[in-house]
Nucleic acid binder design. Sequence first.
RNA 1: GGUACCGUGGCCGAGUGGCUUAGGCACUGGUCUGCAAAACCAGGUACAGCGGUUCGACUCCGCUCGGUACCUCCA
Length: 496
Amino acid sequence: MNTENPLFIYNTLTRRKEVFEPLHAPFVGMYVCGPTVYGEPHLGHARPAIVFDLLFRYLKFLGYKVRYVRNITDVGHLEHDADEGEDKIAKKARIEQLEPMEVAQYYMDAYHDAMDKLNVLRPSIEPRASGHIIEQIEIVRQILDKGYAYISEGSVYFDVPKFDHDFGYGKLSGRVLEELFANTRTLDGQEEKHHPADFALWKKAAPEHIMRWPSPWSDGFPGWHVECSAMSTKYLGKQFDIHGGGMDLMFPHHESEICQSRIANGEPSAKYWIHNNMITINGQKMGKSLGNFITLNEFFNGSHKDKEGKEMLEQPYSPMTIRFFILQAHYRSTVDFSNEALQSAQKGFDKLMQAYRTLQGLKPSGSDSADVESIYQKCLEAMNDDLNSAMVIAELFELTKLINSVKDGHATLTEAGIRRCREIFQTFAFDILGLKDESASDHQEVINQLMQMVLNIRQKAKNEKNWAVSDQIRDQLQEIGIAVKDGKEGATWEFK
RNA sequence: GGUACCGUGGCCGAGUGGCUUAGGCACUGGUCUGCAAAACCAGGUACAGCGGUUCGACUCCGCUCGGUACCUCCA
């Protein structure tokens, strides 16, 4: 929409930054792989949700009408370690004596709750795989009709070698079919498949499998990748603009989706493939077996015991600290979580929010001693350069420094300049980065007046050089979490 | 072993073929203050290693070392 200053975005498919041009401006269709709802929402869920929330918000800021679809996977997940052949959700249901949909509902609610706290906007449509079995069966049927799939023992598999021959396989992940399985030892008993690269479109359910649906081929359940092809096509059309997800999904999930959609729809599906990088904790990948599998609520509460029962989190970290920390890194870089890094993020974020509050009480001058507009432009350029939120935050700190300098009398801003600072904060910090001031509350106005009263009393004591009383007020406020700061124009306060 | 990506100062984390001292946190000195805190000013530490291309590379190429994700089934 902005032709002289367009948005560039990195497309995994071409491995370069490309100008973003929607197929049908001003409309944008975006599909992002959502969570499998069989466990508590954890740190690994936060990054893709926040990254694509950033993109969603920015596209809307640019004036696009975005339909953002993010699926909920609530069927057919098998445990990859123990209990082979049993659905992840079904297993949880059996152990907890629950209906499978009850399990899915519980964890879906937990996911929503955590995402709300992180100020992640809800997508336009959030379709569930279990609600689209008919559409998935239809996709499988189409692929069979076109000759790119075969039936084996009641299951249906995609014929990868045939696809590779006709269209080329592995473009997204840079894999070559011949090399992919060249070193593979023949030790598995997957006799049903013609080629090791073939993947399931429909799986016949074993007798103990709880979640099952009838189909032309067997009572069973859809293959993992089919749901995304089915639901993206249903809600965004055969061709749409953006397909997103974590880098871990590039292969085989997205590669398989490309195969299915290409055959079923007769044309390539997504124009831009966007992948966020992964998260590590103290330099290690997050995994249940490593004992560093931290849920979001554990972060918010500040309690997580590792394998030896040692506390890993030195303190609670608020949702905005997590969000700010993630946005301080570029989405295609790995980001490493540690207490030290989170604590510095928290302090930085507090400083930013404090500056915004300071801004509200700034006294205007006759001239601007700094170029506020250039900060706005730099923020815009940073976002247009493949969503460089880290750079935007750096610019917001430049703004912070300016605001504090004005407060200290080392710089000046006009009425208009102050208004512009407020707009930049609103636009970039709140609207686009999706940050929010967590210390604001419903009773803020009452608290403000209450605090003003307390500070007035303290000022009176100070005027009388009654340090005992003035220090007592300050120290006791400190104890209940309020910091008092004396300045030239009287004292101010903030929540610690 | 294959594929993709990465290795930046005490920590986190941007960036570019020849002024970014990016930015945050921590640290040091100063201003301010009854004392503090905050804020402001000033300061230091850097581009994993080794070669090559170039007038010049942290940025391009190669190798080495180190790290992350994915890689026979399934989602």
